[in-house]
């Protein structure tokens, strides 16, 4: 056997398991889901094998058949999910940007320790991290008790089962996804550039807007995408902290599968989520490529 052909066999051997796994348990399931999304829901759950694009019509307004109607509730849920995901991104960004700056300026050993501490909660069970905030925000929770303790019991905010609670939960769970990319780009920042801008007469604000912000843009965008995607499709946090009052698209999909048993409609919603996320990722790739290209001399 020639060395070339033995290398080819090695490559085939290395790739076969992943190919089987990805084809069998990823691409085929996604394909079946896409197919389901254009089938007609059966009377008692399940599907009828007829082409039925009207599942999308219920959300988007078109196409509409004889039976399905445009229901603004679903479009509203989709918009609310997008809005809360965007708010979560902004909250994470505002919290993490100064913190990442702080960490990047710590001396070596302390920096490693703090980085370790910031990364650690990422490994903690998601449901436990959400639960921690339920302890704080629930009507008899820590927040109410703190207000009581200082004699302001009547003014304690009732945040549980509001959009605010959902954003707090999402932001807490997703903070590391924003922090790490931000930190990576802030760490690379050359202080000499800021010094130069200040020597040339730029105010600190100008220095920040014209030097720091553009140079850390890849981190901001990267972190935003990493936070936006799981926030948008999340269903655990809204189920636990939003209750029935703050339905997001993730809860709606879950409901279609486990309660309403309209699988084609649930699949169509999931396809819409996937489509929106692919658009976000493509926009990111386009933007990131440009920013990256512009920064490098």
């Amino acid at each position: 056997m020639s060395p070339g052909s033995s290398r080819r066999w090695a490559l085939a051997g290395l790739l076969t398991p992943a190919t089987l796994l990805l084809a069998g348990c990823f691409l085929v399931p996604l394909g079946i889901m896409a197919t389901y999304s254009v089938l007609s829901p059966g009377l008692y759950g399940g599907v009828e094998w007829e082409f039925y694009p009207y599942n999308y019509g219920r959300v988007l307004g078109a196409p509409l058949g004889d039976v399905e109607e445009f229901d603004p509730v679903y479009a509203g849920i989709l918009l609310r999910s997008l809005r809360l995901a965007a708010v979560t991104v902004v909250v994470c960004l505002c919290l993490c940007y100064p913190a990442a700056f702080w960490v990047s300026r710590l001396p070596g050993a302390r920096k490693n320790l703090v980085l370790f501490l910031v990364t650690l909660p990422f490994f903690a069970n998601l449901i436990i991290r959400v639960y921690a905030w339920m302890l704080v925000l629930r009507p008899t929770g820590v927040l109410t008790r703190a207000f009581d303790a200082v004699g302001l019991g009547a003014h304690a905010p009732d945040l549980m089962f509001t959009e605010g609670a959902v954003v707090i939960g999402l932001a807490y769970v997703l903070l590391p996804f924003m922090f790490l990319p931000l930190y990576a780009s802030i760490e690379k920042l050359d202080p000499a550039l800021l010094q130069a801008s200040s020597d040339l007469g730029a105010s600190p604000l100008q220095g920040f807007l014209r030097v720091t912000l553009p140079l850390t843009a890849p981190g901001i965008l990267g972190g935003s995408v990493l936070v936006f995607i799981p926030a948008f499709g999340n269903f655990v946090v809204p189920a636990m902290m939003g209750g029935a009052k703050v339905m997001l698209v993730g809860n709606t999909i879950e409901q279609q599968f486990l309660a309403a048993r309209n699988w084609p409609f649930g699949a169509a919603l999931a396809m819409l989520v996937l489509g929106i996320i692919l658009i976000a990722m493509l926009a990111y790739a386009w933007r990131f490529g440009r920013v990256d290209g512009a920064v490098r001399p």
Binding site: I32, I229, P230, F232, G233, F257, A267, V273, I277
Partner: peptide, 16 residues
């Protein structure tokens, strides 16, 4: 599979 929302992968696998 890592970047797409868990719920999409979850229901795709369920249907499958």
């Amino acid at each position: 599979p890592m970047v797409m929302p868990d719920i999409v992968l979850g229901i795709a696998l369920l249907i499958f």
